[in-house]
Nucleic acid binder design. Structure first.
Lengths: 184, 184
DNA sequence: ACCTGAACACCGTTCAAGT
DNA sequence: ACCTGAACACCGTTCAAGT
């Protein structure tokens, strides 16, 4: 939080690293190839960042902002009642360009305490949003937690689970599941 | 699929790679460190495998076996009615040692067609199991698909979502969610 | 303030040579 | 049949030197 001066190419490194992470996963966030792509020597990387890990942390921080307030603001802008807003949330979440980045970051979180904390903060923020909507629908605390976790699992599961549904569309299956979870 | 002769140390490479994948993610599956751990030179690796990618494929294949038939056999062995079996499934799935491996593999699947196909086959096998149990509970095809996907999302979401539930336990929250999904 | 260039250690891959 | 050892290319990191 606060105090970073906007150096011209620090942001360029972070953007390039984010794209590499989306395209090729963690292994593609490699200093030398990134330097080549940016048209500088890899030596210059170490002016902006302590090491590769610091670059990953910067990508993580950017993802945190976009993955919480970014998406929630867009849901609120679209409007509708509580159930509409939850449906909008998963639609935006599933259309998101940052899905592959999110996947890679959740994988990192499995083995890195700091990454896990950031992911937990993002999940907390999103779950709080889901909980608030379910409360508006009149569910009690226990129901809010069970149905809320199931709704959020649906959103996460949607891009992690690689299964087909016969002639039914995934969109339809999830809409039906939401219907069950949003109805008493 | 048959035809492989059981070379003494091929299996040792695969086991070591699996442990490295669980412990340190994809980047930890590195030929030279693995060779050091196994007490051989990295040059010898290339007798057993074409390249690093082939080692990863072998780990993937092993995961596929354990992640489908392995877990399903244990659920069937434990017994109970359809709802009991679904609850056993997520209990075993969440206690599983291979969770970190599964996470890493799902991350790889986001960018690799072949990995994605194997993950899809695993998801299909598990979802078929879930579907069959829901059919036994008397749900029609549409309900089976919606509730089944939500149940499976719960199982997957459980180890991907890093959120707390106040004084409620995760175990309790998921049990409640299952209750909702298994009840008309 | 930001970058280059050279250096070094480490890892992926190849291959001729050993047993 | 299985492994070693040396070689080479590539990437992470450091640092003295440039502008």
């Amino acid at each position: 939080m606060g105090g970073r001066r906007a150096q011209k190419s620090r942001g360029a490194w972070i953007a390039a690293a984010g794209e590499a992470l989306a395209r090729g996963g963690i292994e593609a966030v490699a200093v030398e190839p990134l330097a080549r792509a940016l048209g500088v020597t890899k030596g210059s990387f170490y002016w902006h960042f302590a090491d590769r890990r610091a670059l990953l942390d910067a990508v993580l921080e950017a993802w945190q902002r976009v993955g919480t307030e970014g998406i929630i603001e867009r849901v609120e802008a679209k409007g509708g009642d509580a159930a509409d807003r939850l449906r909008t949330l998963w639609q935006l979440a599933s259309a998101e360009a940052g899905l592959d980045v999110e996947m890679a970051i959740r994988d990192l979180a499995a083995r890195d305490e700091h990454v896990a904390e950031v992911v937990a903060a993002v999940d907390r923020r999103r779950m709080d949003f889901v909980r608030a909507r379910l409360r508006e629908l009149g569910f009690d605390a226990g129901e809010v937690e069970a149905r809320g976790f199931a709704c959020y699992s649906l959103i996460i599961g949607n891009h992690f689970i690689g299964v087909g549904h016969g002639r039914r569309s995934r969109r339809r299956v999830i809409a039906d599941a939401f219907e069950i979870l949003l109805t008493r």
